[in-house]
Structures are given as C-alpha cells and as structure tokens.
Simulated scan of single mutants.
Amino acid sequence: MEGAMFYWIYWTFWIYLTFFMDKQNPYRLKLSVIVLIVIIFSNYHFHIGSIEMYSSGPILLVFSYLFLAQEKLYSLLYLFICSLIVSIAYVTFHLFEIFDPIWIIFKKEWMMGITIGYLAILLQKTLKGRLLIVISGTMQGEFLYAFILSKYQFPYPIGSFAYLDACALIASLLVGWSFLENAGAILQNHFHFFEKGKQKSS
C-alpha cells in the first residue's frame, strides 16, 4: 500500500527526534516540527491547472530551500549543482521506467532509493548535505517529470505517496549509512585507545 513506508519511517524519525535525540542539538526541534508537518499534510492535495499536487512535497521543498539559504555562497553553489544532478538522475530513472521497464529487476522504490542514496553519498560528505540535495533534488525532479508527462497528456500527481515512500526510504538509507560511518570512527578511536594503553604498559 502506497504511503505505508512513508508513515512508518517518518513516525520513527519523529519519535527519535522528540524523545531520544540529544536535547542540546540545535536541529532537534526544527526537524521534529518539519517531520510532523509533513506527516499532517501528506494527505492534502490541490490542483494547479491540470496538475495535481500533494502538499507535503512542496512543504519539503520549501524547508530544504530555507536550510540551503543559510549556507555560504560557495557551499550554496555546490549544493545547488548537486541538487540538479540528483534531479536529472531522478527524472532519468522514471523515464527509463516508462520506455524500458525490463531493467527494473526488483522493486523500483528500492532501486531508486539505493541509486539516489549512493549518488548523494558520492556528492556530499555530511548527512545534512545529503538529505538537503536528496529532498530538493527529488522534488525538483518531480516538477520536471510532471512537466514532461504533461506534454503527452499523461496525468502525474506531484509529491504523491509513491514519492513520499521513495523519499522516506532514501532518507532512512542515508541515516543508516551515516550511522555506520560514525560507528566506524568510534570503533577506530576505541581501538586506538587500547593500542596506546598497550604501548604505555609495554
């Protein structure tokens, strides 16, 4: 069922941000509010001309732009370029799905999640940067994809539950990868500590 993955993952994020994340973290309150707003407005949709649009998609895009606007000019330009690369990859994936569906060898959400997630990991080093280019890039891709399909009179809802499922999956994969990266650093420091202790004792 479309939307199930989105609700599970976003509610998990909200519970973690609200009850388990360090209260001194400056992003804790902002992120918990954003996640809750996205969940609340996920089922609301409206029309702009002939195009149907769900509210959560544009809300995510606006919040991502607000975070991007806080970056310095050089970082902002690079993030914008990365966001465009993600947009092109997102639209290309969907177009290949239409014109050559045989290469979809397993569930498309997972294929897209792994592909876009890996691209974000290559382009950005921090979890914040990865999430920003994924959210802004995929939503920009949604608008571009809907525009392309409208030329052929194919209706496509922007920011639907199918998109939210894919976006939630990509976000969870990036958070999981970031956790593994940090866990590796912690283990490395832990082993260095023991190695130093052995050297002192010898």
Rank of each mutant, 00 (worst) to 15 (best):
M1Q: 05
M1G: 04
A4N: 09
M5K: 15
Y7D: 10
W8P: 01
I9Y: 14
W11G: 11
F13K: 13
W14R: 15
W14C: 15
Y16Q: 05
T18A: 11
M21H: 13
D22G: 13
D22Q: 14
K23N: 12
Q24I: 14
Q24G: 15
P26K: 02
P26M: 02
P26I: 03
Y27M: 09
Y27D: 08
Y27E: 09
L31D: 03
L31T: 06
I34E: 10
L36I: 12
F41H: 02
H45S: 14
H47E: 01
H47G: 01
H47Q: 04
I48L: 09
I48R: 04
S50T: 12
I51E: 10
M53R: 01
Y54P: 01
Y54N: 03
P58I: 00
L60I: 06
V62C: 05
F63P: 01
F63D: 07
Y65G: 09
Y65D: 07
Y65S: 08
L66A: 15
L66F: 14
F67S: 13
F67W: 14
L68F: 11
A69C: 10
Y74H: 05
S75Y: 12
S75V: 09
L76R: 12
L76Y: 13
L77W: 07
Y78C: 02
Y78T: 10
S83W: 00
L84D: 00
V86T: 05
V86E: 00
S87N: 03
I88V: 09
A89T: 03
Y90I: 03
T92R: 02
T92E: 04
T92P: 01
F93N: 01
L95K: 08
L95D: 06
L95T: 06
F96V: 10
I98C: 07
F99I: 06
I102D: 06
I104D: 12
K107F: 12
K107E: 08
M111H: 07
M112Q: 09
G113E: 06
I114K: 08
I116F: 04
G117L: 07
G117K: 07
L122V: 09
Q124N: 02
T126V: 00
L127I: 06
K128A: 05
G129V: 01
L132G: 07
L132M: 13
V134C: 04
I135E: 06
G137S: 08
M139W: 03
M139Y: 11
Q140I: 13
G141V: 06
E142L: 10
L144F: 15
Y145R: 14
Y145E: 08
F147V: 07
L149T: 12
S150N: 08
K151W: 13
K151R: 14
F154E: 15
F154L: 15
P155W: 03
P155Q: 06
I158Y: 02
Y163D: 05
L164N: 04
D165R: 10
D165V: 03
A166L: 10
C167T: 08
A168D: 07
I170V: 14
I170A: 06
S172Y: 05
S172A: 12
L174P: 09
A183V: 14
G184D: 03
A185E: 12
L187N: 12
N189C: 09
N189T: 10
H190C: 11
H192L: 13
F193D: 12
F194A: 00
F194N: 03
E195A: 09
E195H: 05
G197K: 09
G197T: 04
K198Y: 04
